[in-house]
Amino acid sequence: MLVGALFPLNHLGHYLHWHFINVSVANTTVMILMIAVFVAAVALPFPGRRERKGK
């Protein structure tokens, strides 16, 4: 195996299992990040608005 990374994720993953739902922690992290980023993108103020007012 080549050394290609500081913390390679080659060890067996962990999985979240709830009824028929079965998702890897890695995929769950990605999905939670996506939702978080979307919520943040909607909620956070976009910079530069105030200066535009003067135009």
Binding site: P8, L9, N10, H11, L12, G13, H14, Y15, I21, N22, V23, S24, V25, A26, N27, T29, V30, M31
Partner: peptide, 18 residues
């Protein structure tokens, strides 16, 4: 095991296939 979404090891896989 919903394997289509998964990758070997602990890497994120093709989550878009959920």
């Amino acid at each position: 095991q919903w394997g289509m979404m998964n990758e070997t090891g602990s890497y994120p896989g093709q989550a878009w296939l959920w």
